[in-house]
């Protein structure tokens, strides 16, 4: 069994609980034990605009904390995954900068003892395609669109999770889970997630356009791996719809939730209740049931 430190980052630990629940439930299926390490802070990714220096420091201190426990990091958030990987590689290539960061770490009572590996759930699921196929309980049987998110694909100078322009892993995972998934033109477009700080309308426009593209192409749902996109495309889908002036009603769901459901985990424990868009599973039936009830009542 491989032990990994779960690095929840800002969004998982403060609002996107459904993603964290599904990651916690799903990872043991792939022989991974998640450890909660105290002391983690923001990865620095959302505040690059303010200070790259601070971003590198925040990332490096989280790596140092995981290293102290002797653990590699599982970072389910794309922004965290890039920020941690970037700091590791940049400091590895720049001894002067590393010296400065070491001084700062000492001021906080931390030590730099070499980098740790940063892993994304997408990579783990892709390494375990056979496990998904062998343990398939509920084949998904739907046509699903993928939203990778920018930060696990770019930039390729660093080791990223998949190919930068033509990624394949998410489609392969969904096919292993019994779903149908083909590439569509807009799939590596940005969701505008990092716009929320100062360009909220534009963020909603970008997210809305992404959902609209998947809906227009006839997909049953949109699957993502990044909490920044999910909070807009799922949590604020109706606001996105108003902003772009279209009618949007598409299920948006985390990849870990889809795979967990396919492998027979309890939807409640995967945080299905916390997704605010139309449900991917059972939604139509419950609507019909509701209609029937109304008819009976009349």
């Amino acid at each position: 069994m491989r032990k990994l430190a779960l690095y929840p980052g800002c969004l998982l630990s403060t609002s996107q609980y459904g993603y964290e629940m599904s990651v916690r439930k799903l990872m043991p299926k792939f022989d991974i034990e998640l450890v909660d390490v105290p002391g983690f802070s923001c990865c620095g990714g959302p505040v690059r605009h303010l200070s790259m220096n601070m971003t590198y420091y925040l990332a490096i201190r989280n790596l140092a904390i995981a290293k102290k426990e002797g653990l590699d990091i599982l970072a389910p958030c794309n922004v965290c995954h890039l920020s941690l990987t970037e700091a590791k590689m940049k400091l590895f290539g720049s001894p002067d900068l590393l010296e400065k960061m070491k001084e700062k770490l000492m001021m906080e009572g931390l030590e730099w003892d070499g980098p740790v590996e940063v892993v994304h759930p997408l990579e783990i699921m892709h390494e375990n395609l056979d496990v998904i196929k062998d343990n398939l309980v509920n084949p998904i049987g739907k046509k699903l669109a993928c939203h990778y998110g920018c930060h696990i694909l770019r930039y390729s100078d660093l080791e990223r999770c998949d190919h930068t322009e033509t990624p394949v892993k998410m489609e392969e995972i969904l096919r292993a889970a019994g779903a149908e998934s083909e590439p569509y033109p807009e799939r590596i477009n940005c969701c505008g997630g990092l716009y929320v700080a100062n360009q909220r309308d534009s963020a909603l426009t970008k997210a809305g356009q992404k959902v609209e593209a998947a809906q227009f192409r006839g997909y049953d749902g949109l699957v993502d791996t990044c909490p920044w996109g999910h909070r807009l495309m799922d949590g604020q889908q109706q606001e996105c719809a108003q902003t772009i002036g279209e009618k949007l009603d598409l299920p948006v769901i985390y990849l870990t939730q889809v795979v967990g459901y396919a492998m027979g985990l309890d939807p409640k424990e995967l945080g299905f209740d916390l997704n605010l868009s139309k449900p991917l599973f059972g939604g139509d039936e419950s609507e019909e049931a509701a209609d029937e009830k109304e008819e009976v009542a009349e």
Binding site: G9, C10, S13, T14, S15, Q16, Y17, G18, S41, C42, P46, V47, G235, D273, L274, N275, L276, P279
Partner: peptide
């Protein structure tokens, strides 16, 4: 973190 812990809305 960039924001404090918030209650989540359910369906």
């Amino acid at each position: 973190m960039i924001m404090s812990e918030q209650p989540a809305l359910t369906k």
